[in-house]
Design a protein around this nucleic acid. Sequence first.
DNA 1: CGGACCGGTTTTATATTGCAACCAGATATT
DNA 2: AATATCTGGTTGCAATATAAAACCGGTCCG
Lengths: 151, 151
Amino acid sequence: MAKRTSLKDNACPIARSMESIGDCWSMLIIRDAMMGLRRFSEFQKHLGLAKNILTTRLRALVADGILTTEPASDGSAYQDYVLTPKGRAVFPIMVALRQWGEDFAFAPGEATNIMVDRKAGKRVRPLELHAADGRLLGVGDTAIKPVASAG
Amino acid sequence: MAKRTSLKDNACPIARSMESIGDCWSMLIIRDAMMGLRRFSEFQKHLGLAKNILTTRLRALVADGILTTEPASDGSAYQDYVLTPKGRAVFPIMVALRQWGEDFAFAPGEATNIMVDRKAGKRVRPLELHAADGRLLGVGDTAIKPVASAG
DNA sequence: CGGACCGGTTTTATATTGCAACCAGATATT
DNA sequence: AATATCTGGTTGCAATATAAAACCGGTCCG
């Protein structure tokens, strides 16, 4: 294609987020990293994607500060890909995507999986957005406020 | 490229969500629709993307049940693209992406915009995930539970 | 020390993207 | 009423991204 248009310099945080993690494979790599996968071959087997694609995605995630490489935990000469704090902070996005998918992307009775509270084993509540004073907020209760550049 | 691998039949809700809305333009179209944009030309001007790309994205979002077309609200012969309930349910995903972007994707002092509570004008709280019994849950407090196909 | 495994890189074919030009019908202007 | 302009696209084209497959040097395993 023509070069994909970059949103790196867009002023909207949503656009910037999508630029970093708005790719199927990147998101699924982060998902798998949250489940404990660390090695190149683990990601490749579990996701079933081509190795060259995995390579480009891992490099991009490392460049973005979402993953870091560190010496393999099994003592071998290889390396692990592990989440940084920025990477772990993707958790709410993952939960939101998951809940929307659970609710709308499956026919009744279709095989799938759901997120549960580890202790009780019960399904978690829908994500909630609250105001600073604690009020529960819906779609119409929010606004976007510009923040000018300092300088 | 070779045909992008489809995740439509993947059992993971995250993968299915990404298949529907894991595209920059699709997500930004939904964002703009939430801000009240409705017409083809409004999306095109505001997003600055090519018309053929906008066409394919709008068609896909309609096919996915995220947008619907309806007669233009201004009485003209044209049509509006409006969010369905499924489309409005993308809101938490949008908020999650936005909060992560606000937190990690901008240098200090860079121009941007933030989400505030419409009434108080104050920044909203981070999204929260709670267990059925109300406990606040973090990354390690959740688990994924398979749901076999019925039949 | 020989074979398998690991983490890639290099082709190659085919899709997708984006730009620009074009177009028919609806709307606005004179 | 005739013409110009806007709307919502479609059609070509060039550049780039994706995926499958083959290949490859360093590790590890017995």
